[in-house]
Structure formats: C-alpha cells, structure tokens
Computed example of a mutant assay.
Amino acid sequence: MRVLLLGQRGQLSQELQLSLQGQYELVVRGRSRLDLADSEQIRQQVRELRPELIINAAAHTAVDQAESEPEAAFALNARAPGVLAEEAASLGVPLIHYSTDYVFDGRKPAPYVEDDAPNPLGVYGQSKLAGERAIQALGGPHLILRTSWVYSLHGRNFLLTMQRLLQERDELKVVADQIGAPTWAGSIATATAQLIQRWQGGQAGPWGLYHLTARGETSWFGFASAIAEQLRAEGRSLARLQAIPSSAYPTPAQRPLNSRLDCTRLQRDWRIRLPDWHAALRECLTSPR
C-alpha cells in the first residue's frame, strides 16, 4: 500500500517514519519537496502519487509565533488539510490528520470529550480547528486525532528544553496550573500504525474525530519534575525547580489551563489505548528509536 506522509523533520513525522517504514510503500514529503502553503502544488503531488492513504503530520506548531503570523498558521493548519481532504475524497482514500487540545479554552473542570464545543484562545488553536472543520466538511473517510503536549527526542519540545535548562541553570521556574497529559510522539506513531492495521484488516471503527493522549495527567511542573528525576538517576547535577502560576510567565498566546482529553471513544471504537504518561516517558528515554 502506498502511503503519502506529509511532514518530514517534525517530531511526529520522524516517529511515524520509524513505525511505518518497511510495512508500506512510504512516500515522505517535507517542505523541501512540497510547499503546503501552495494548494496547487499539493493537488499536483497527490494526483501524481495516487496514494492509498494520506497522513498529514505537517503543521505550523509555533504557538506564540502564530499570533504574529496568522496567515502562515492558517495556510498550513487550515487550508492545506482542506485541500488534502478534497484530494483524498476524490481518490476515495482515507486521510489521517492530527489536531490539538488548543481547540478548547481550558475552562471545563473535567477532561474534554469530542462533542464538547471548541473555543480556542489563540491563532494556533483557531487555525487547527479550521483545519478539522475543513476535513469534516468534505465527508470523506478520515481520522482526526486530537492530542496534547507532544514530545520526543527529535526537534524542539518541552522534554529537550527541560533536559538542557535543568543542566544549565541553578533555578528553573515552571508553570504548575496548566494540567494535561504529556504524550510521546512514539506512542502516537504506534497507535497510528495500529489504526491502519485495524482498517486494513477489516476491523475499523467509525471514521471521524477522536482524542488520543497518554493516560494520566500532570502539570508542566510535574512533567519537568519527572524529567529531572530521570536525569538525577544518571547522577546529573540539576537546577532547583520552582512552581509558578501561568500569570507569572506571560506569553503572546494564552494557554488553556485544562488540556485533559477523554480518550474513551477511541478505546471503545478502535480498541486503541495509549500507555500512562510516566511509562511512555521512561520508554522514550530508553528507546533505541
């Protein structure tokens, strides 16, 4: 089966390549070979390649930067997914697309379910929500997978930043009032491979929108503390961690205080369940990937 994977060097794309390479005829298109801001270029590539499955792991993920460049964020996160959905529908093939907890405002006291009304706080969340709706409007077979707090050993993310800063500074202040589930990109890639296998094996659940995060919950401070614990076990000398409220760390884009996503629907419909975030972090740090 020929699979077209959009995105090449992002942390999720790199994990998907590791999970899918060798199982399928994987065609990877990064920004050097495909400008996702160019709708006609997207159409041309899809029509030439004629994939049997499209996976969109490309996105504008710089949350604060999106506030000052909304056109770029909407081009990649909204318009490009819509074009991909159109082309997938015309070929009659499924599209797998990844979205985010940032489509919610974080004011709900409980984990969000798929049917909760979105209310993004910034441009990034608005653009990702527009991408979801563009895909849904086409009506073709698709999976939109909302995830949260993605990290890996590749690219730029909270894990790698904390590993560096913990060893460079004497004291490190980390936000403690934003709650969510740190989710390893490797876990998302493994789940994606399982979803594809279920579909190929005739065991697919309904197409549509699902939440996909690690089990459990913590704050950014709790996540940083777990990262520090792993480094301390290696005998490293580390910074002192200090918990602070979001108000003490202002950013251009406001973050939701509650990023917890209820993943019950995906487990029920597709029998997919990610590991607890502690276990996934340990696997990430010891993985040969």
Rank of each mutant, 00 (worst) to 15 (best):
G140N: 06
T147W: 05
L195E: 00
G82S: 06
V175C: 07
Y124E: 04
G201Y: 08
T192Y: 04
A89I: 15
H211E: 08
T147Y: 12
E114N: 08
L76D: 03
I96R: 02
L121S: 07
Q163D: 12
Q197S: 15
H142M: 09
A204V: 14
T100D: 04
E171Y: 15
S148C: 15
L165I: 02
P141K: 06
A181D: 07
I188Y: 02
A214S: 14
A193R: 09
K128C: 06
N77C: 01
W199S: 00
A75S: 02
T190H: 08
V123K: 07
I196W: 04
P81I: 05
G208P: 04
L121G: 02
V83S: 03
G139H: 08
Q197I: 11
S99H: 05
W207V: 14
D116W: 11
W207D: 08
V113T: 11
A80I: 01
P118M: 03
T190M: 15
I188D: 00
G139K: 10
L166Q: 04
A72W: 10
W199K: 04
F158C: 00
L84G: 00
P120I: 01
E86K: 02
P111Q: 12
Y102R: 14
L209K: 03
F74A: 07
L95S: 09
T100R: 05
R164P: 05
G140R: 02
A134V: 03
A75P: 01
Q197L: 11
K173D: 11
Y102V: 05
G180E: 03
S148R: 12
G202S: 01
Y210E: 01
A73V: 09
Q178V: 07
V113R: 14
L143A: 10
Q163M: 15
A85P: 07
A193D: 09
P141G: 09
S148F: 01
N157K: 08
G125K: 06
L121A: 12
R169T: 10
L143T: 02
A176E: 02
T147D: 14
T100W: 01
Q163E: 14
Q167T: 12
R164I: 12
D177P: 08
T161Q: 15
T192C: 03
L129G: 02
Q178C: 11
Y112T: 04
Q203A: 14
R133L: 09
P141V: 04
Q126L: 14
D177C: 11
R156P: 12
L153D: 12
Q197Y: 10
A85C: 08
